[in-house]
Design a protein around this nucleic acid. Structure first.
Lengths: 235, 235
DNA sequence: CGAGCATTCTATGTATACATAGGAGCTTCA
DNA sequence: TGAAGCTCCTATGTATACATAGAATGCTCG
């Protein structure tokens, strides 16, 4: 196994990244992007050869993916990428609703107004962003992430943030299906604005209800998108 | 190393249990029971020698404990049992409230009345149970588990049940601190009865509110118990 | 006597060799 | 021809040897 560090040692943004971490991120990304569709069998030897790490760190990576719920496996019979059907999506949104409503409530109570005022301005500019094509779309998704991060920071609860992170992981797999619906994204931006306004105002109840509405709309849209294309597109 | 299977091959209740699984269960149990108190350093070599497995399955076990949030570790600097202070307890209950309220709501909507009617009878007998000393206490805790399982079965949502399982794991560490308060346990049984009645009646709102009340009472009791004995007793 | 540096030691990270169990496919017998 | 049994093969489970990075400690120099 030749040079593991093909890149210059000083190039990385931080540490050169361990083999197990690399394997985890790559597999996770490929599952989330649909490159490894649900049902795909993950063979240790095959995957370790493909990614370029030995079996030991690859096993660690798969163990983490199992903990994430992205991979399932029976002992002695291999591992497969977990399925993501309509029922799973409904179930996921059920948990998401509980957690995000609670988070919104807490965020409205503990928020730093300045942070959300800045976000408000950015969301006001979202419709213009969405008119800019692919790059604008990317920046819009980054904005959503910023919002989620701001809520997480306001909540300041490792358990809640962790549970939300788990939900968001699975959500990333779903989002791919409903991508590219400008009308929906514009509506979503407006819904986010409502939530942000409620948080700024410190109105816990309104923040929770606005979040509820937003998630219900989101779920409806996702389910409709899936009706359109029964089985997700796969490379 | 010599015979891993000291016991007769046909003795085990099921499969002989893998080394990694054994290590995981033992370490998890010891952390939950406080035998390995927060802050304890888990050295791979030391622990693998103690438990009697090699480093590879022990690493897998520690990886699972990290996913559970029971162990934390900086890469290259070892692993330690996570702390559990008053703030963590408050944060845990915050998430617990969100999840259990939602679960109670759903359970009230989807429940099988017969299951909860049976539980109702058992909880009615709880005060008598609590008068029976240690064995009665044990059976009481089993009854709580039965209730939790019944709610989980009614909810029928793997994501929500999984999130609840995570919370319950950490809760087990806390419960040890507040153990042995008969008055509180009698009150808790009465609170559970209220929740069960609401679920039987299909009253989603009441089930959620009764759960909220119960958890608030539970948190208050736990915090009071900790005030009494600042740092938990350790073997 | 204090601070900086080199050395050593320890614990994790990684790779590989071996053990084992489960399944697929083939052969054989009825 | 079909079904049952056996064999081989493959993939995971486990153990161990080696690489490496970080920290603690002791030494030396100012």
């Amino acid at each position: 196994m030749g040079s593991v560090y093909t890149e210059t040692p000083t190039a990385g943004p931080a540490a050169p990244l361990r083999a197990g971490e690399r394997a985890y991120r790559q597999l996770r990304g490929e599952i989330l992007d649909g490159i490894l569709p649900p049902g795909t069998g993950l063979l240790e030897i095959e995957q370790s050869a493909r990614i370029g790490v030995s079996r030991t760190p690859l096993r660690a990576a798969i163990a983490r993916l199992i903990a994430d719920g992205l991979v399932a496996g029976r002992p002695g019979r291999g591992f497969i990428v977990t399925e993501m059907n309509v029922d799973s999506i409904r179930e996921l949104y059920e948990v998401r609703r509980a957690l995000e409503e609670h988070a919104a409530r807490i965020a409205a109570d503990r928020r730093d107004p300045a942070v959300f005022l800045a976000l408000r301005d950015q969301f006001l500019a979202a419709p213009a962003l969405l008119a800019q094509g692919e790059t604008g779309l990317h920046r819009y998704y980054d904005l959503i992430d910023e919002f989620d991060d701001a809520v997480a920071a306001a909540v300041a609860n490792p358990f809640l943030v962790g549970a939300l992170a788990t939900v968001r992981t699975h959500l990333a797999r779903i989002r791919r299906l409903a991508r590219g619906n400008p009308d929906r994204l514009r509506s979503a931006a407006a819904e986010h604005l409502l939530i942000i306004d409620a948080i700024i105002a410190g109105d816990t109840s309104l923040a929770a209800h606005a979040t509820h509405v937003h998630l219900q709309q989101s779920l409806t849209n996702v389910l409709a998108a899936i009706q359109g294309q029964p089985t997700g597109p796969v490379a």
